[in-house]
């Protein structure tokens, strides 16, 4: 990482400035059709990626005793629905799912929105201290956050927010990662001429954001939304410290599974599966949005 690369990218690829607007005509960055080899590689990757999740489902369909045996089960058993039911009841998943949706939803919206705004400012607007502030933003990521949960809890307790959902929403509502990500994306993807053209016609900054920045940022916003949602949904260290089982998120609730001296692994796995399913739905929703060439429609309208 170098300062010069971070701060002066507008002039880095002059060719683009001339060509960029034409992409709206060409549509998305998609190039050629995939050949058979592509599918082979993707299938291999998909198998490796999916295996642990599939095995989670297999484990959730067995019983505790079978999971200790060798070789471990490699195909589904008969207990899936029974275990899912048990996990759902034991963990009080109804409240947990509701809370997690609010928490992860708020964090995702906040992160995507604020990161796009800040990323745009850092990428395309000129203001004093912009490069210093950007480096500062990146610098905040360099200190590991795990220990900060102790003073953070003390601080939340002072606010009388212990066990309330805002304790887990507010600290991650903005993201240095997202800001930096959006900045790097927009530097390349958002042609400066578009902004200037809007300026010439007297468009306010908000209008520029709405009609130029958001459409251009859409694929990145979708990816950031996806990554943020998963991160927020699966985050557990701080939520476990900050919340209790009376008002839990999914990860907190899952931590109440497997009680007793013999934790039932099949029920724990069923809980893990339950906790992951909403993510897959979110994936399908966001995944469709990772498409270039959206500006075509937005700009015309």
């Amino acid at each position: 990482m170098t300062t010069s690369e971070l701060t002066a990218p507008q002039d880095a690829v002059p060719v683009r400035e001339v060509r960029a607007p034409r992409r709206r005509v060409m549509g998305a960055g998609k190039q050629m059709h995939a050949g058979p080899l592509t599918y082979v590689v993707l299938v291999v990757f998909a198998l490796v990626s999916l295996a642990p999740l599939v095995w989670t489902a297999i484990a959730a369909s067995r019983n505790n005793q079978r999971l200790a045996e060798t070789p471990p089960p490699l195909w589904f058993g008969a207990n899936l629905f029974k275990n899912l039911q048990t996990a759902w009841d034991q963990a009080g998943m109804g409240t947990a799912m509701f809370n997690s949706t609010i928490v992860a939803g708020s964090i995702t919206i906040g992160t995507v929105l604020f990161s796009t705004l800040a990323g745009f400012a850092f990428a395309k607007l000129k203001f004093r201290f912009s490069s210093t502030l950007l480096l500062l933003t990146i610098g905040t990521m360099m200190i590991p956050p795990q220990l900060a949960v102790v003073p953070l809890y003390l601080w939340m307790a002072d606010l009388h927010w212990s066990n309330h959902l805002q304790t887990v929403i507010l600290p991650t509502l903005v993201s240095a990662f997202g800001t930096f990500f959006m900045r790097q994306y927009l530097v390349q993807a958002l042609p400066t001429e578009l902004i200037e053209a809007a300026r010439v016609d007297g468009a306010s900054s908000l209008r520029v954001v709405w009609h130029v920045v958001f459409p251009a940022a859409r694929p990145a916003m979708a990816v950031l939304g996806l990554l943020t949602f998963v991160m927020a949904w699966n985050d557990f260290l701080w939520p476990i410290i900050a919340l209790n089982q009376q008002n839990p998120t999914v990860q907190v609730a899952l931590n109440s599974l497997g009680t007793g001296y013999i934790p039932d692994q099949s029920v724990i796995m069923a809980g893990a599966l339950l906790g992951t399913l909403p993510l897959l739905i979110a994936f399908l929703l966001f995944g469709k949005q990772i498409v270039g060439g959206i500006m075509q429609g937005a700009v015309k309208g």
Binding site: R16, R19, A20, R22, R23, V25, M26, G27, A28, G29, K30, Q31, F181, Y185, Q188, A189, A216, P219, A220, A222, V223, L227, I290, V291, G292, G293
Partner: peptide, 12 residues
């Protein structure tokens, strides 16, 4: 992350 950036590369 890379895919999102690739989506913004002009087709031409």
């Amino acid at each position: 992350i890379y895919l999102a950036a690739m989506q913004a590369i002009p087709g031409d």
